[in-house]
């Protein structure tokens, strides 16, 4: 037996954690626990990002996702956590159909993953020769419009701007949507008298 190749070990560890907690999210019925498992799963994912050499993305995953997005979700959980919503049962039939479809999808995806020989990984000897390059600087340059890494030609400045504006709009929109209803009655009226197809011939 060869010595353990530690990156693989960590991949296995993080991978199992990520998958395991993902499955736990799926199977848990309690919404609070689900949120917790989700945090664990996403954190483990960031570990996988580091392993794949994406240090910056890994860090962002931890900061934005685990630190930001999920906290938002947990707020949601707390805001709606009445007794009757904490545990909601699903019909067995839905589970069966879900598992049938999901299982088939999983099998297909895994089969696809292993059907390309080039994706199976590299030799250990070659792997130990690899030099790890930092990615923060090239990423930052890329976002600012000047790619420095080899192969990249176009920067992402425009996309970066679009995403920023989009984020801004979204946050404003979210705030608007989420604020307490003042004119509930009018809104109901507005939606109720539009009947679908009323203008069309019967």
């Amino acid at each position: 037996m060869d010595a353990i190749y530690w990156p693989s070990f960590f991949f296995l560890l993080f991978g199992l954690l990520a998958c395991g907690f993902a499955v736990a999210v799926l199977l848990a019925t309690n919404i609070v626990r689900m949120a917790f498992y989700l945090i664990m799963s996403l954190s483990a994912t960031s570990g996988l990002f580091f392993l794949a050499g994406a240090d910056f993305v890994g860090a962002m995953q931890l900061m934005i996702y685990v630190g930001g997005t999920l906290v938002l979700l947990i707020f949601g959980v707390m805001l709606t956590s009445q007794e009757r919503f904490v545990e909601m049962k699903t019909m067995a039939g839905d589970w069966i159909f879900g598992f049938l479809a999901g299982g088939a999808l999983l099998v297909t995806l895994c089969w696809v993953a292993f059907s390309v020989p080039a994706w199976r990984g590299i030799d250990r000897a070659a792997a130990e020769q690899l030099q790890v390059e930092p990615t923060v600087a090239p990423l930052a340059m890329g976002l600012l419009g000047a790619r420095t890494d080899e192969g990249g030609e176009h920067g992402y400045l425009l996309f970066f701007e679009i995403v920023s504006v989009h984020l801004l709009v979204v946050l404003v929109g979210a705030a608007y949507l989420a604020r307490a209803k003042i004119s509930r009655g009018t809104a109901a009226e507005r939606t109720s008298h539009v009947e679908p197809g009323a203008a069309l011939p019967k």
Partner: peptide, 17 residues
């Protein structure tokens, strides 16, 4: 909503196949 998601999953599968 949940059935739609199942439709999507099944649709993806059908596309694959």
């Amino acid at each position: 909503l949940r059935q739609y998601i199942l439709f999507i999953v099944v649709g993806a599968l059908v596309l694959f196949v």
